[in-house]
Measured scan of single mutants.
Amino acid sequence: VAKRKCPDHGLDLSTYCQEDRQLICVLCPVIGAHQGHQLSTLDEA
Rank of each mutant, 00 (worst) to 15 (best):
E44C: 09
T41H: 07
D12I: 11
V30S: 12
R4H: 04
V26P: 14
C25E: 01
E19L: 07
D20M: 02
K5P: 03
A2L: 10
S40T: 08
H34E: 02
H9Q: 00
D43C: 09
P7F: 03
D8W: 07
H9P: 00
A2E: 15
D43H: 09
E19H: 10
D12M: 09
V30F: 06
S40P: 09
C25H: 01
L11V: 05
L13P: 04
K3M: 11
C25M: 00
V26N: 15
P7L: 06
C25A: 00
A2M: 12
H37A: 02
Q18H: 14
C17K: 02
D12K: 07
H34K: 02
Q22G: 06
L39P: 10
H9A: 00
H34V: 01
S14W: 05
C6Q: 01
Q35G: 05
G10N: 15
C6M: 00
Q18F: 06
L39D: 11
V30I: 10
A33V: 09
G32N: 03
L23N: 07
L13K: 04
L13A: 10
C28K: 01
A2K: 15
C25V: 00
C28H: 00
A2F: 13
Y16N: 05
D12V: 07
L13M: 10
G32D: 03
Q38R: 12
G32F: 01
Q35M: 11
P7V: 04
Q38S: 13
D43Y: 06
K3D: 14
K3I: 14
L23I: 05
H34W: 00
V30D: 12
C28P: 01
E44Y: 04
L42D: 14
D8E: 14
P7H: 05
T41S: 14
H37E: 02
G10L: 06
R21P: 01
Q38A: 10
T15R: 09
L23T: 12
V26F: 09
E19F: 07
E44T: 13
C28W: 00
S14I: 13
D43G: 11
Q35K: 12
C17L: 00
Q38L: 08
Q22V: 10
Q35C: 07
D20C: 09
G36E: 09
D20I: 02
E44G: 12
R4T: 08
P29E: 11
D8K: 14
D43K: 08
R21L: 08
T15L: 04
Q18I: 09
P29Y: 07
D12P: 10
Q22T: 15
Q22W: 02
H37G: 01
Q38D: 14
A45I: 15
E44F: 06
C17M: 01
G10F: 04
L23A: 14
G36T: 04
G32Y: 01
Q38F: 08
A33Y: 07
L42P: 14
V26K: 15
D20S: 05
A33M: 10
D43E: 13
R4N: 15
Q35E: 11
A2Q: 14
P29C: 04
K3Q: 10
L42R: 13
H37R: 02
I31R: 12
C17F: 03
C6L: 00
V30Q: 14
V26R: 15
